[in-house]
Write a protein that binds this DNA or RNA. Structure first.
Lengths: 193, 193
DNA sequence: GTCCGATGTTAATCAACGTTAACAGCACCG
DNA sequence: CGGTGCTGTTAACGTTGATTAACATCGGAC
């Protein structure tokens, strides 16, 4: 019974619904039953697609981390100057955050609920992504300390990732422009002697 | 039995331990038993001090919101110019975040777990605190749109509240200076035509 | 046409957790 | 002293929730 044909997008459909629910109510605030219901199934049906709830979360965070890192790296390599590389990182992160607010929220909040084998891998990817930023910043500001560049990077992440909590007052483009301006200026401020 | 005399600080002791645990593992990731153990008691003992787990969280968030708002308001009133008022808000928020990283984390993440009568009150206080910032920004930048000031404020909160995730590379003072510089510049960038 | 793997369903299992009950010691007040 | 709150403890209760078992359907390969 159920749907005529189960499309191969079922996994993605579940992941997408899960992201939305996890962002809104938190990982532990969402049951397997809720998750199933969100895609028109019963709870246990999810075990046909994922090993369990933790595995689902792990896959979600892993995917986000990989997307951030690989696309970020790609854009840095394609940039023609360090300043443009930084700009590319900024635009990439802003676009991602504005297009996937739920993913960003989960990515920031729920790492602690991923079990250990995969948790480390996700952290590794997150760190590598941050290092992408640090690397560019260090070229632009050669005599700045590493610590400072790293802390500044995390602060900018905090600024950019705050989008989901800003209850959409501005249009998407206005918000993108605002975030870009603020983050750019924050980064120059971070390295003013 | 137990302690010779139960000091009246017991409630505060519990709240403090709870903040630490909630920040690290999330509200649902901490059991009543964990909470008790953290202060050398068993789980059910907590019911001598709080109505329940939700009430404990509610009290914690209520206290944070009130402290942010009243002290923020106080400093704005004491300031001799709008620019100094903004500076005072910045310093106040930075000090609070650096001195209470766990509280900031919980304040940002766990509002959704507070039951409805008190949830609304906390939101009201949070909004009022944000409006304190918006009000000052609107004096400094009279022809900026309200929306923009509000979004900029939330973005700066995101920047400042990111401290807990920045794994203490810098000293407290260096971090305070960095955050101040970045937030200041971000705010001027937010209103550049 | 039949068989099989993929995808669901409902019913059962098992652990964890919030909360309440019943009971005990201690300090302090008359 | 004798009680009376206050603050603990352990044991019991009831719910919720993740996971698994047993069973059904359907579409496509042969």
């Amino acid at each position: 019974m159920a749907e005529a044909t189960a499309p191969p997008t079922r996994r993605l459909e579940i992941l997408s619904a899960a992201a939305e629910l996890f962002a809104r109510r938190g990982y532990h605030g969402v049951s397997i039953g809720d998750l199933g219901r969100a895609v028109g199934l019963t709870g246990p049906a999810l075990y046909r697609h994922f090993r369990g709830k933790e595995a689902l979360l792990a896959e979600m965070l892993l995917d986000i981390s990989e997307r951030l890192l690989t696309e970020g790296g790609r854009r840095v390599e394609a940039a023609e100057s360090p300043a443009l590389a930084l700009d590319a990182l900024l635009r990439w992160h802003i676009d991602f955050a504005l297009d996937n607010p739920a993913l960003i929220t989960v990515h920031v909040r729920e790492l602690g609920n991923v079990p250990q084998p995969q948790r480390r891998e996700i952290r590794r990817l997150q760190r590598a992504y941050a290092e992408e930023w640090v690397k560019v910043l260090r070229v632009i500001h050669p005599d700045a300390a590493d610590d400072r560049a790293r802390s500044a990077t995390h602060a900018v992440f905090g600024l950019l990732n705050s989008t989901p909590h800003s209850t959409g007052d501005l249009s998407r483009d206005a918000m993108a422009g605002l975030l870009h301006a603020m983050a750019s200026d924050a980064l120059t401020g971070a390295f003013r002697s």
